[in-house]
Design a protein around this nucleic acid. Structure first.
Lengths: 208, 208
DNA sequence: TTTTGTGAAGTTTTTCACAGCG
DNA sequence: CGCTGTGAAAAACTTCACAAAA
């Protein structure tokens, strides 16, 4: 069955929360409580979890460790993804050091930057290559996912070089520009100004 | 009429695109073309724009500059928002220098960090204060929006101090932790690991 | 003729409400 | 009895399809 994107998004939130509850030695938690902690309706929580089988106990709730393992199994890939980060500017470097990019699900195997002073160096333990060599390095290393932190005007060029390697399957882009990719490459976007604009819009229009 | 969040999100994309088209001296653009450039259906574009009155010309399309001005009017706040950034780590600093935080809609008026070496300094032209003084400084300056780039475990404390000032209306948080705020404070979240997890999940499950 | 603007239809996502199990 | 799991209802959002304007 196809799982909806909003559900996957919340699964990650459940996963984090359960990790925390586990650390607090909590044994059991109800959909009601999960909902309160994450700002969701209890029925939403139950519906999400029900897509993956009956995991709770009626009259009791969800066993924290069991649910944690369960969601972990749903979210985990069957292998280690190989990732490259393109654009080692301030944002790129900040992300490299950021908790979000530490995971046992993937490894950052290469950095790319158009600044030839950066090429050849090792940053946060990851070798940096010149952007000109992107196609070959990505192909050679079998990189499947790109994290794009280049300026908007460099985004499409970078993507084209990466796609040319033939190994690419997904892109997480922080660039504001629209990028075009083959149908079989999945793109997710993190757009800081869009989020800020939305916040200000709804603040202006007298609240949510 | 209440405008839906997905619509506001796309308005920002239209706005950006129109700016670009304007620079390319394009005079007129159709919903069809906007859709192609942004990966949206033409009917979606027309529906979004129709919420704000009849702005296009049938048989012709949308006049680039006119539509740009129009959307600008919808998105613009009626005043300059005062923003503070909390947590001047790598991510915080990267954002400070980032294009997303340059705008004539708001101004970053204060930074806060728990590191007392940073307090008293001026970073990217913005004075940095000690987090302990957050409540007073926010109140004094009339800060209405917070950008939160602190570690998860510091998020709630920071928020509480900011809320105590009584001037806060919205928060854009990069922290992974759930935060609780009064009902009248609007929270938007930019969650890098969630986006990456979603990407990997849908890659794993054999594409979108 | 071309392309908008828009009700109506369709799809997706959330919420309700309650049967059913522990 | 308490709380899950889940069809069914509701709400939110997108797409269709066509009348109407330029």
């Amino acid at each position: 069955m196809r799982i909806a994107e909003p559900t996957v998004e919340r699964l990650v939130l459940y996963y984090r929360l359960l990790m925390q509850l586990h650390n607090e030695e909590r044994r059991v938690v109800s959909s009601q409580e999960i909902g309160e902690l994450l700002g969701l309706k209890a029925s939403q929580v139950r519906k999400d979890l029900s897509y993956f089988g009956e995991i709770g106990k009626r009259g009791v709730g969800y066993h924290v460790d069991r649910l944690y393992q369960h969601i972990s199994g749903i979210l985990s890939p069957n292998r280690l993804w190989k990732i490259a980060l393109v654009g080692v500017g301030r944002l790129g470097e900040a992300l490299l050091g950021h908790k979000a990019l530490r995971s046992d699900k993937f490894r950052i195997e290469a950095l790319f930057d158009s600044d030839s002073n950066k090429a050849g160096t090792v940053i946060c333990g990851v070798p940096c290559y010149n952007s000109d060599d992107m196609t070959e390095v990505i192909k050679e290393k079998g990189i499947e996912v790109l994290i794009l932190t280049v300026p908007a005007n460099a985004a499409q060029t970078s993507v084209d070089k990466a796609v040319a390697a033939g190994t690419l399957r997904g892109i997480l882009t922080f660039a504001t520009s629209a990028i075009s990719v083959p149908d079989d490459v999945l793109v997710y976007r993190v757009d800081i100004s869009v989020e800020l604009e939305k916040l200000l819009f709804f603040l202006k229009s007298g609240l949510k």
